[in-house]
Design a protein around this nucleic acid. Structure first.
Lengths: 183, 183
DNA sequence: GCCGTTGTTGCAAAAAGTTGCATCACGGCA
DNA sequence: TGCCGTGATGCAACTTTTTGCAACAACGGC
């Protein structure tokens, strides 16, 4: 959808290679934007062709060479303009909610298991987010402007995580009664 | 991703035509699954070909005929099995969060506007969800099993909405200080 | 020197989703 | 009678994303 901008945003602070970007997309940026390495490499070449990124090859000791990309002036300008354009949201599609529509006595147990597992996952991610917040964003009001934005994106992830945990608890407690009745 | 199952789930209670389904996907089911009518019509034909749906033409007065689809036994069985398979989540991709990473003195105002607009939208949807909850799910504990699942899916939407409103307030209050400093 | 492992980049086919338009039936109305 | 609006279904081209795999460099061990 806006993979190009997600990549360019990642390059705001530092030049990165495809593999470094791919790793980034599993951490910070990946908190709210996901992309496979195949997607990233392809997009990088497109962006370089458009003149929004420049590339240079960097020798590495012990590893194959990497191709490091950086924003050009045109790239920065296009990104800055993009902010004023229309904003799209691609709402979550969660098969778990779909499964809930198919709840019955036979599969409650399985679905409870899935919710429990998911709760665990989300909790782990939440710990990670909160560690980052404690480490870098202790006093949001005093942050430089751009970092306030980054902080708010992180906060959004934290809010969502907490909300999800609360929902899990509600769901598990409601479904516990179903399981009992079944037994 | 699992459009087939989303459609079949919609057909659990009642047989529907393509256009009726498309309307559904903007309401109840659409709260957590979106699909265009083109996607739906295509998928319906695929599912009918697989033997999971049956179709019949229904004459309508004042409108062109519609083709109504219903679950076959094979369809119901495949759906019931699907519940035990792996669950995928397609996390939200929200360009607004991406834009926040690009926050600066120049665009704060615009971004504040976007957040405000989004807050409004979400609030409207939330009213809708809550109306449904009051109307149909007043006493969750006493619902039949399957409806408990549907209720929980709705609850998930409500939680998310409330969380988002809270986040907006936090964001707007933090960004207000930036705007002031700018002025 | 060969072999497996890891890291980096890449290709290609398939699936999923989007966009824009086309068709056709019906009714209302000028 | 001709024309327009609406509702229902559908086609085709395109873009985006996913899946699975390939090439190749370096290093470590043997």
């Amino acid at each position: 959808m806006a993979l190009a901008q997600a990549i360019m945003t990642s390059l705001l602070d530092a030049d990165l290679s495809g593999s470094e970007l791919a790793r980034d997309f599993e951490k910070s940026m990946g908190f709210f934007w996901q992309a496979s390495h195949q997607q990233i490499y392809q997009e990088l070449r497109k962006l370089a062709a458009k003149g929004w990124l420049n590339k240079r090859e960097v020798n590495q000791s012990g590893k194959p060479n990497k191709i490091v990309y950086g924003l050009t002036l045109a790239g920065r300008e296009s990104l800055a303009e993009w902010v004023y354009g229309p904003t799209r949201v691609q709402p979550t599609k969660d098969e778990l909610l779909l499964k809930l529509y198919n709840l019955n006595e036979d599969n409650v147990e399985h679905i409870v298991g899935e919710i429990t597992a998911r709760r665990e996952e989300v909790m782990k991610r939440l710990y990670l987010y909160e560690a980052v917040r404690r480490r870098h964003y202790d006093d949001p009001a005093s942050l430089p402007v751009r970092h306030k934005g980054v902080y708010l994106a992180l906060e959004s992830g934290i809010h969502q995580g907490e909300q999800f945990l609360a929902w899990c608890d509600e769901a598990l407690s409601l479904l516990a009664s179903v399981e009992k009745r079944k037994a």
